[in-house]
C-alpha cells in the first residue's frame, strides 16, 4: 500500500508496524520542520523581522522561532536590510561559518537588489556575495510576506536531493583517493 504522495509506504501485514519511505523524504522532512534561522538584522527590515518573531505574527507556528545569533548553530540566514560594501565582508564570513546544509533568504528590496539605495556604498544585492534561495520583495516586506517566504523555503527544502548531496562528497573523496593510489 502506498500513500498518495508516494514518499511513504505502509503495510499493516508487515509485523511491527513498519513504515517504508525514501531516505530523501525523511531527511527533508526533518530538515524543513526544524529550520533555525540566523537573523542577519542589518537595517529597517530587521524591525519587521522582529515583528515576525514577536507576539502578533509569531514565527514559532512554523517551528522557526529558534533564532540563533551564532552562525554555527543556524542553518538559514535571513538577510534583512541593506548590505553595504563594508558589511558585505562580514556577511560573507558569517555565511562561511554556517554549517551545511544552509539556506539564505534575502528579505526586502535592499538585500535582493540594493533597493532604493543606488549609491557608492551599497552592495547591489546580497546575491553578489552569497547564493540566495528565496527573495522577498517589499520595502520592508510585510511579516506575512516573510512567513510566506519561509514556507516557500520549506517547500524548496522538501524537494532537495539530500542523500545524493550527503554521499556526493564522500564518493568524490573516494574517487580522489583511488586516483591518487593509481598515480
Amino acid at each position: 500500500m502506498k500513500s498518495e504522495n508516494t514518499t511513504l509506504g505502509y503495510n499493516s501485514k508487515v509485523e511491527g508496524e513498519v513504515v517504508v519511505t525514501q531516505a530523501d523524504a525523511v531527511i527533508n522532512w526533518i530538515r524543513k520542520h526544524s529550520v533555525w534561522p540566523m537573523p542577519m538584522g542589518l537595517a529597517c527590515c530587521a524591525i519587521e523581522l522582529m515583528a515576525v518573531g514577536a507576539s502578533r505574527f509569531d514565527i514559532s507556528r512554523f517551528g522557526m522561532e529558534v533564532m540563533r545569533f551564532s552562525p554555527r548553530q543556524a542553518d538559514c540566514m535571513i538577510v534583512s536590510g541593506t548590505v553595504t560594501y563594508k558589511m558585505a565582508e562580514v556577511v560573507r564570513r558569517i555565511y562561511e561559518q554556517m554549517a551545511e546544509p544552509k539556506w539564505v533568504v534575502a528579505m526586502g528590496a535592499c538585500a535582493s537588489t540594493g533597493g532604493m539605495y543606488r549609491s557608492y556604498a551599497t552592495l547591489q544585492g546580497v546575491d553578489r556575495i552569497v547564493p540566495v534561495d528565496v527573495y522577498v520583495s517589499g520595502c520592508p516586506p510585510r511579516p506575512e510576506a516573510l512567513l510566506d517566504a519561509m514556507i516557500k523555503l520549506q517547500d524548496k527544502i522538501g524537494r532537495e536531493r539530500s542523500v545524493k548531496n550527503l554521499t556526493a562528497p564522500k564518493a568524490a573523496a573516494a574517487a580522489a583517493a583511488l586516483a591518487e593510489k593509481e598515480a
Partner: peptide, 24 residues
Amino acid sequence: LAGIEVPFPAADVAETANAKVLPA
C-alpha cells in the same frame, strides 16, 4: 553618486565570493 570601481575591502572574501565594488 553611483561610485567608482575599487577593490573589495577584504581581499580573501573578494577571492572566494568573486566580489567587487562596482558602480551602482
